[in-house]
Every structure is written in C-alpha cells, then in structure tokens.
Amino acid sequence: MTTHPAAVRSDAGASRAVLSARGLTKRFGPFLAVNNVDIDIHHGRVHALIGPNGAGKSTVFNLLTKFYTPTAGRIVLDGTDITAMDPARVARMGMVRSFQISATFGDMSLLDNVCIALQRPNHLSVQFWRPLSSLDRLRPRAMELLDRVGLADMAQRRAADLSYGRKRALEIATTLALEPRVLLLDEPLAGMGHEDVENMASLISTVARDCALLMVEHNLRVVADIGDEITVLQRGEVLARGDYATVSTDPRVREAYMGSEDGGH
C-alpha cells in the first residue's frame, strides 16, 4: 500500500482526493488512446470529463474502473494503489461504475435489481441452500433506494419494460445500494428526454454530496450546471481543467470543442 506523492499534494486542497490517477496511458496496438492523463476526483464534488468524440473519455473511464489495464501510469483509491487490481475487487473497495448502455438485469423486477447489489455487502450471495425469503430483509432498504430515484411505485415491474430514462434511474439506485465512495457515471444523460435530464441532473448533484463523483457527459448545459470540476480531453490528452468558467473561456477548449458546439447541446 503506497500513497502517491501527487495524491498527497492534492489532499492539501479544499477537499480530499479520493481517487487519483497519474500518467495514465493506454495503447491499443499502435494507437495511443490515452496519453499521460492526470486526474483527481474529490469527495463531495461532481467532476465532469468532457471532450469531443474519440477524445478518450470512455477509455479513461474504463481505465479508472479497471475494466481496462493501463499501459502505464498509476491509480490510487483512498491511498491504496489499485493499478493491478481486478474490477470486482475495486468495486468491493467502494468504487462503482455505470455503463454507457444502461446496465440493468432485464428479466428481473426492479426490486430484485436493487437487491442484487445489496446481497453482497449483506453476505447473502453464496447461500444456495437458503430460500429466496432470506432476501426479504433487504427489501425495505431496496424500496428506499427505488424511492430515492422515483421508482418505488413500479418496484415489481420487469426492468426490461422500463423506459430508457427510468432504466438509468434504476441503475443509479442499484449503484447507490453499495454506498460507493467513488461513483463513476458513463454518459448518465445520454438519450434522455428533457424532463428526465432535469431529474437525473438534480439526482446526480444530490448523490455527489456523499461521495466523489466522476461523470463522462456530452450535455454541456448540465455540466455547466452541476459540474464542480471539469477535465477536457482531446486526442487522449488533457487539454484543460478547472471549473466551468475557467474551462469555457480557455481559447484552446473553445477552438477544439466548444467553438463548434457553442456551449450547449
């Protein structure tokens, strides 16, 4: 267990960096997808990772959650070097991710979806000899979580039958069941209708009070609204970082990204 010097330095800031990466690099054959990226995710803040298509956002995301192994660089979670750990172990340490394509257990009820997440921390995942009723004690907590994302009244519905926006909300509820220290959301607002976007954005900022939150997002209006820190990627490298005002006035960012999008979506 080692603490990265840079991570310690960032601790001196206003809030604690829960997740830090230094020199993060990923090659796919000859293609350099991510080059020497440094990033710090702080407790209680929403960190947005933005950039044009193909900038390497999703690769960084998959590297941080250990779904990809970095070619070079280090990742430190709460003082523990997780660079060589497998994704399930990282998840057990409290870093939970969502997926770009909504990830629910389609053929199960919403309640069961959330219960799946609750089973492991409650040591109810290997008992093949016990009846399903042994999971009943998880249900009040699961209902609370569903209520938090506004899905309590459809707890018995099949997840596959939900609308897209509600699937994303269910995914958040499932993720929150693990009481994550770090929450990583991959394009949580993609494909949502206007009303769903607003609900989800307010949910994200509420959730971020109790954990460190990183989201990859294209919707710059929402990023401007709820993002406390923003990292802009371009061609696999960090182009700029800071709050929205700083980033959006950076001439390089304007040229590379916002100039074409005019700060909105």
Binding site: T65, V96, A103, D107, M108, C115, V126, F128, P131
Partner: peptide, 20 residues
C-alpha cells in the same frame, strides 16, 4: 436462492454484475 439470484444476474448482464 440468494446464490441463484446472482447466477441470474450474471446471465442477464455479466459486466454489471462485476461492477457490483
């Protein structure tokens, strides 16, 4: 059983089960 629920979760979405 509780174990069976996890098997179903793996069947439905393996990456999501890992991420949990």
């Amino acid at each position: 059983s509780p174990f069976g629920q996890i098997l179903k979760a793996i069947r439905e979405n393996e990456p999501r089960t890992i991420s949990l």
